[in-house]
Amino acid sequence: MTCWETIGAYAFRSLGFGEKLLPRTDFTLCQQFTLIGSGLIWNVYFGALALMLGFFLSNALALSKASHKPWARKPAEWFIFVFRGSPLFIQFFLAYSALVMLPRGGVDVLGLHLPTSWMTSAWAGALFVLFLNTSAYAAEIFYGALMSVPKGDLEAAEAYGISGWAKFRRIQWPTMLRLAWPAYTNEAIFLFHATTLVFFSGFPAFQQRGDALYYANYFADKTFNPFVPYPIVAFYFILLTGTLIGIFGLVNRRLNRHLPSNTRSKIRLRPQLIR
């Protein structure tokens, strides 16, 4: 099998297309690169969707945490505390064992029959956990940024007669986003890193359709040689991290475009989180 044929057979193996059986003997470098790259599709899927959905929830959570009313503040505080204070690994296990307890045949709500079996599969269940998790972490970041919006900016807005919702939408929120962006970039990067935990934490890889680390682990187990597959994963993730920094850097530039160049906030990669 040439390398092109291997790519044809395995490039979308993680989604269930192409060759059914994984290679069993005579592992080539090409196979490892292709399959692990194929698995990376899942990492991108989990990371990107959780991040996009989480952006909205985290904003809402940050706002309610900043609220003066206890009925809005307390739930947000507890949500953030629970998801930031416990390991993501345990959250995955917990969610999976909770989801398998749902009745197999589905539930009837108000005469509607809702199937539930899809929720135990990784694409839905794990995505849900990652979405809640990243919302909590990002909410804390946004909350911190919201608290450090300069007082002078708000006073200036009121002096111009901008108040209430307009003040929030035009002054507070953009400034919060700008201040939070470097930390939020870090959060995004480590969210993508955290997606590698999914298939090690109870969620089954249906028909051996797994993520990048799942395939790397498969190869390492089969060849008993960790020195090839894991560096390949590392290589892919460095690429992914680089791409993310690029994209978030563009947004950062837009958020900072009104500032003189020496006061712009730069994105600095800081290792923050294993969850």
Binding site: F192, H193, A194, T196, L197, F200, L213, A216, N217, A220, P226, Y230, V233, A234, F237, I238, T241, G242, L269, P271, I274
Partner: peptide, 10 residues
């Protein structure tokens, strides 16, 4: 920085 820690663990 660029690589998930769990890769290192494994």
């Amino acid at each position: 920085r660029g690589v998930p820690d769990i890769v290192f663990f494994l």
